[in-house]
Simulated scan of single mutants.
Amino acid sequence: MTTTYVLVHGAWHTGQAWARVVPHLAASGRRVFTPTLTGYGETAHLLGPDVGLGTHTADVVRLLVEEDLRDVVLVGHSYAGLVISAVANQVPERIARLVYLDAMVPTDGENALDVMPATRAMLGDGWRVPPLPELPAPFGLFGVTDPGDVAWVRTMLGDQSLRCLEEPVAMDNPALDAIPRTHIHCTVKPEGFDRRPVPAVQPNGEPADVRELATGHDCMITAPAELAGLLLDVGDRVGAGSLRG
């Protein structure tokens, strides 16, 4: 069985963020999809106050259904941890494993502000939420410090709708709990963006699967080969069926 990956970018980015990871996965015969969510990149003209988590969940569900994708390793970076959670709640039968990549990991009924209260500091008076500013090294722009890479990241950044942060995620489908999870944590991060501890036991009863990358938040840009290696390991185990049994 060929493992299929669907890589979902985080807030302010586009599917182009995965450009350095895709060749590593594809070279091993994997199918890879990197959708750009509504309101970003080529669909920036569609951004409005009504675009939110539900919009982005529908984007990914539509991809899975239209392409008839099954046994998917569904990867969500940062904000997209909420997106993949909501997607798996709607179509759990299509998902082999969830991968939370330095991501927000919600519970039923939470929104992004609940999961990471530090995001409240980014809110202004309107519905647009601009990208985070560049920080001094080693944190840089979303963890990217190389000047050329910073310039490249800037080409894909755009505003996000406030609704993305305020809309709660639905995780009330009992079938969702059966899906195994992997958590990949980037260890270079600024203060104030602490992540929740990962419970020792997953909802399906398996031990927690937590990996680390010694790099900044946008690891798909700063450590693409290392990230791909972790994803290939997860995919290989899914393909062998060992993660479900």
Rank of each mutant, 00 (worst) to 15 (best):
H217E: 01
A80I: 03
G15T: 06
A137G: 07
V198Y: 04
T119S: 11
V22F: 08
A112V: 04
E42F: 09
R120I: 07
N111A: 05
D159H: 14
P147E: 10
P197I: 05
A44W: 01
P197K: 07
W18M: 12
E134W: 02
L74E: 01
V198M: 05
T182Y: 02
W18S: 11
M171E: 13
T107E: 15
E110A: 08
Y40K: 04
V61D: 05
A103R: 00
A240H: 13
R94G: 09
R196C: 07
D125N: 14
G124R: 13
A214S: 14
G109N: 14
T215L: 04
V198H: 04
G235T: 02
Q202E: 14
L162M: 03
P130F: 07
G109A: 12
A27F: 06
A137H: 09
L64W: 01
T4D: 07
R181K: 13
V99C: 09
V32I: 07
R20F: 08
D218R: 01
L37D: 00
L74I: 06
S161W: 02
A27M: 11
V129G: 06
G10F: 00
M156R: 08
M171Y: 09
L74A: 02
F33R: 12
L37M: 14
P190M: 05
L37G: 01
G48Y: 06
L64I: 08
V32H: 02
E167S: 03
P131M: 00
I179P: 01
A170Y: 04
L82V: 00
P138M: 04
A151N: 06
L227N: 02
G109V: 13
S78F: 00
L232M: 09
V21Y: 11
D236V: 08
V238P: 01
H45P: 01
D236S: 15
L37F: 09
V169Q: 03
D172F: 12
F33Y: 15
G81T: 05
L64Q: 02
P136Y: 10
A103S: 14
R163E: 07
L82G: 00
E67S: 06
L227E: 01
Q90D: 12
G245N: 15
R70T: 15
L47Y: 08
P117V: 03
V21G: 10
P35V: 00
L47I: 12
L231G: 01
A88I: 09
A223L: 02
D159L: 04
V51S: 02
P168A: 10
R62F: 06
D172M: 12
D218N: 13
N173L: 08
D108F: 09
R62L: 08
D194M: 07
A27N: 12
D59I: 05
A88Q: 07
R97P: 00
K189F: 13
V72H: 00
M156S: 13
V22E: 14
A86I: 11
L132S: 06
A27D: 13
V72I: 05
C186A: 15
L7Q: 04
H77D: 06
P92V: 08
R211E: 14
L25R: 12
L165S: 03
V188N: 10
H56E: 02
Q160A: 13
